[in-house]
Design a binder for these strands. Structure first.
Lengths: 309, 309
DNA sequence: CTTTGTGCTTCGAAATTTGCAGCACTCATT
DNA sequence: AATGAGTGCTGCAAATTTCGAAGCACAAAG
């Protein structure tokens, strides 16, 4: 789009931190870019960047503006999506940020199901921890976010919340595998591997341990659940994961046992969008499908909390 | 603003209904305008106008787009207002649509009070009946609307609602002036003058009369309250108005008596804005001032119903 | 003190936009 | 049927805007 070019350039400069770098990124000369910015500031009525010896940086007015720009670009996409939809094309693109646990089973199945009905719709999936996912929403980089234990709930529109208990993950034949449900202290008696602090499940574990005399002493801290899955088969270790990220019945090497709620609080899986934003047709429908799918998960594992839209 | 010029042109064409007319309005040639539109449709990916033998008209996609355009323009104004505000200038513009009753006393006083503190802020006041006021909000022609008995409440954000009884207006020495409060049937026994159906107060009167054996037989129907004020001094006629549009104590030619609520329902004076829209700094503050002022009107005449933001 | 990197300016060239005139068409009027 | 006024659209040359290459002044780093 032509009439938005200047806005895109401004965003590029803001990201690059320097007019010359941004000019290179956008394949134009620095002089042209420089003047476009100056002209824009003239028309806008106020400077957008503060000039530093080492480059430029957005000033407060610019921060306001860049937020507006991102919103407008996303909004234009939405309008085009609506137009495509009413011309019967059912095209579109959905960008979603989600927790790691959704990656192996849930998201692939949902996306495939959606694309079976709407082959013209494409997807971007970004695995993000809970803070990064919210940042993506704010910057209009993702349309939706589906994460455990979001940190700033109030700043977003919540489409659905769902509780999931924390499960212990261990190799078949592990001594703890004999019990139906486990206490956290039993797990901590064995070598355990946990994710880093920015991950939702670690947050819940930290909260739980804070009230115990026993302390957490992980033998490994890894942000990859794949690592954890394989590590617990090496020594008699215990890992942790939400059931939505596990193949509860079908795994022939691992066993999974829920931790009691009085020990470790359940995780809140939350589907969110930018506050007040109207999503594209494709995104809105996919969000509805996600909500329905989460709502129909096997009963004992989940409990529905809130639903809107 | 340069990067929005094409959008403004599109809006002009939509309003004019013809490219040539719009070109004249915008002081360019029709060929230039024609090609800008064609280029835009090319970039946008779909036609915006349907070509008729007599001109052009927005197609459904265009309707969607024009709504986006108006929103974008209003949004940009808001950002500029915010920027002006944080640079300490306290500039801005407030556009408000309101019922006739607000015109003589309330709005002038409120605007003057606001401008006393913020001389950099200018105002547009549009007197509109309740439907036209809502249309203004939808088309982003007004930031705020303050009207009696809005028709499609659900489509807007309601900032405040206030009840006002209907008053009978008559000349000093009128036979009915002896009573403190009046019944509607007493008024209808005299010649009466009422506003046309699109005005809120007429709507309330029609509702009231529907349940009575007595019928309304206006000697005059006029959309000007000024006319009504003067006419009731000519013969022993009765008019109707809300107290906010009357100088209750200070009028030396007219007297005003409230109608009982069981006869005529109270009018709902409602302050609204476009749903989900973030107003400019000036508009938001003025809205707050209006809400406070309405809240502090003399007690017996009004009753507060709802307040938010 | 040199080097590197920055924003900004100048000026001729390139690209885009504009205006004029005219075409093909439809509709209302004669 | 003829006419005229209205429409959207299109070549083409002129006007306007934008761009790119080079260079300047300045500040921080080496």
């Amino acid at each position: 789009m032509k009439h938005i070019q200047t806005l895109l350039l401004i965003e590029a400069v803001a990201k690059a931190g320097s007019i010359r770098k941004a000019a290179e990124d956008m394949n134009i000369t620095s002089s042209a870019l420089n003047r476009r910015i100056q002209n824009f500031e003239e028309e806008f009525g106020a400077p957008i960047f503060e000039r530093l010896p080492r480059g430029v940086r957005l000033n407060p007015a610019g921060e306001l503006l860049i937020q507006h720009i991102r919103g407008q670009i996303a909004e234009l996409d939405r309008v085009r999506s609506q137009v495509a939809d009413l011309s019967g094309l059912r095209r579109g693109h959905v960008s979603i940020a989600c927790s790691q646990a959704l990656q192996p089973y849930f998201m692939p199945a949902e996306i495939a199901a959606y694309r079976a009905e709407h082959p013209g719709v494409s997807f971007s999936v970004h695995v993000r921890d809970r803070d990064a996912a919210e940042e993506d929403l704010r910057a209009y980089k993702s349309d939706l976010a589906l994460v455990f234990e979001p940190t700033h709930l109030g700043e977003f529109d919540v489409l659905l919340t769902l509780e999931q208990p924390v499960y212990a993950v261990m190799a078949k034949g592990h001594p703890l595998a004999t019990k139906e449900t486990l206490r956290l202290r039993d797990c901590l008696d064995f070598p355990h591997v946990v994710p880093p602090k920015r991950i939702g499940i670690r947050y819940l574990l930290d909260l739980a341990v804070a009230n115990m005399s026993q302390k957490m002493q992980p033998v490994a801290e890894a942000d990859s659940f794949e690592f954890m899955r394989h590590y617990v088969q090496q020594e008699q270790a215990v890992g942790f994961q939400f059931p939505i990220g596990l193949n509860l019945k079908g795994d022939d090497r691992l066993v999974f046992r829920p931790l009691q709620k009085r020990d470790v609080a359940h995780g809140n899986l939350t589907l969110m969008q930018m506050r007040g934003r109207t999503l594209s047709v494709a995104s809105a429908r996919f969000a509805n499908q996600l909500a329905a799918a989460l709502n129909n998960l096997p009963g004992e594992l989940v409990r529905l909390d809130l639903k809107s839209n």
